[in-house]
Amino acid sequence: MNYLKVDSVELAYDGRNILQSIFIDCKQGEIVGLLGRNGCGKSSLLKIIFGTLKPDHKYISINDNYIDTGYHNSRIAYLPQHNYLPGGIAIEKLARQIVDADYWDEFTTLLVYQNYHKQTISSLSGGELRQLEIMIILYSKADFILLDEPFTHVSPIQAERLKSALRDCATRKGIIITDHQYRNILEVSNRLVLLTNGCTKHIVHTDELITYGYISGH
């Protein structure tokens, strides 16, 4: 079973500590929910794990093998907050470069793919594009998936489908997910980690989210 470990991450901007004493881990088969207030460093932490942001210090390993850049050899895939698919290329061609060949047939049964696979991303609405981008990441070759706000721009019915897809995906991969729609995160996650004051707190009971001031008690 694959095991991702992120330890001793330190990040500072202009002398201000953004991340310190960070520890987060994820096993294949689980969804870890990463919660935290705006600007607390959730996206920065995901980018550090993915390898696109260089921190002052980090130790990231998969199965105890140190990795410097998460995306090399497609070990880790990352859904950024913004759209990432290039324009002007048919969706089928774009998807083929990232989607795992072993799951290609399953991927092609998705409605959003079937409706638009011959077209470019300009044919899709914002919600459909987001849905497609999420599914491409979930069906990627990567062992670990990092999702930054996947529920944004997604309608309630699509959110339900997404949660189901996440659970399916988690049977073969490890997922770290963050979103401000925390109820969705609570529902879909096996474990919760709260990022507060630059440190990770492992949440055992949701009442602790009130204690740490992430949600109000009312």
């Binding site: 497609s74 759209n83 698919l85 290039p86």
Partner: peptide, 15 residues
Amino acid sequence: TTKNVYMYYRNAGHS
């Protein structure tokens, strides 16, 4: 202008 698409290539395993 199109910095966002860099993530596509990274997700395909290339810097």
